[in-house]
Design a protein around this nucleic acid. Structure first.
Lengths: 145, 145
DNA sequence: TTACATGTAATCATTTTAGTTACAGGATGG
DNA sequence: CCATCCTGTAACTAAAATGATTACATGTAA
């Protein structure tokens, strides 16, 4: 299993929108950079819009970031594109046998441990911003896109 | 998406084996506690055996832990049941456009960030042992199983 | 009104998961 | 030795999720 690439594509889109802030780019343009279908991009952009990370108008090319790059964390994007449900990164097996002391109590014993592991991961994402990502990209390249 | 329940079932199996260490239990017995099919249990036990967490003999009921509960971390189980590939908790979209400076560099920029988030999660799992789980269960119940 | 954009539903192939059945082969006691 | 119970494992299935694709309704603006 693996967390959906919607997350990395979401980061890509946001970074690309900022990079092109002087020009109004269509979903087709963004799709060409990501290398996928424009409808896929529009679907993800709908999620980013719902999370108030971008502003898009129906029928009009050129989405804009709703916040500064430095005010958008990877966790914001992660939550926006809905790749992992709250406290459900790890799935539990359904209905273990309640007649067995292990079966009866294992889920309650394990769940807080799983949650703490998930939160540790999400905390790391919360401490990284899109500005960090952009700076790293800028280190390597300065050309037009 | 969600990490396979093989992980929680693996924890369940190991804990249950230890709980029943005085009696030789079959995969059918374990399956009844987990509430699944014996073949599913045997498949997961094959992985736990390969990771040297348990000792099982073909044809003979009664697997035994290869180590103490306190020497088996949740991370050991997690790796044994192969629920997440190394450094691939987050998936990347394939082949972004190399002609675009963002597309060209985004993956290299993002990957180490994803890896650090994954490692933070795995570190938490590495600091929890099956003994911790068992103690929590024992707090709630002391009956036979 | 024409051209081009977003929004979104419907469909599809692929992959993964978990369950199920079936059976080969090991172990053991009578 | 053989009947019985076990593990090991392959093959098949249903269900769910992902990402791609097509199609089209609707919005915008020159």
């Amino acid at each position: 299993m693996s967390i959906s690439s919607r997350f990395s594509v979401g980061i890509h889109i946001l970074t690309l929108i900022d990079f092109n802030k002087e020009e109004a780019r269509s979903s087709e343009y963004l799709a060409a950079s990501v290398n996928t279908n424009p409808a896929v991009i529009r679907k993800i952009m709908a999620m980013l819009k719902k999370a108030e990370l971008i502003e898009v108008r129906p029928g009009v090319a050129g989405a804009k970031l709703a916040k500064e790059l430095s005010d958008i964390s990877l966790l914001d994007v992660y939550k926006a594109v809905n790749v992992v449900k709250e406290n459900e990164l790890f799935s539990m097996h359904d209905t273990p046998n309640p007649k067995c002391p292990i079966g009866k109590n294992i889920q309650q014993a394990i769940e807080p441990l799983f949650v703490s592991a998930q939160l540790a991961m999400e905390k790391v994402l919360g401490n990284i911003t899109l500005e960090d990502v952009m700076k790293d990209i800028a280190k390597k390249e300065n050309t037009e896109c």
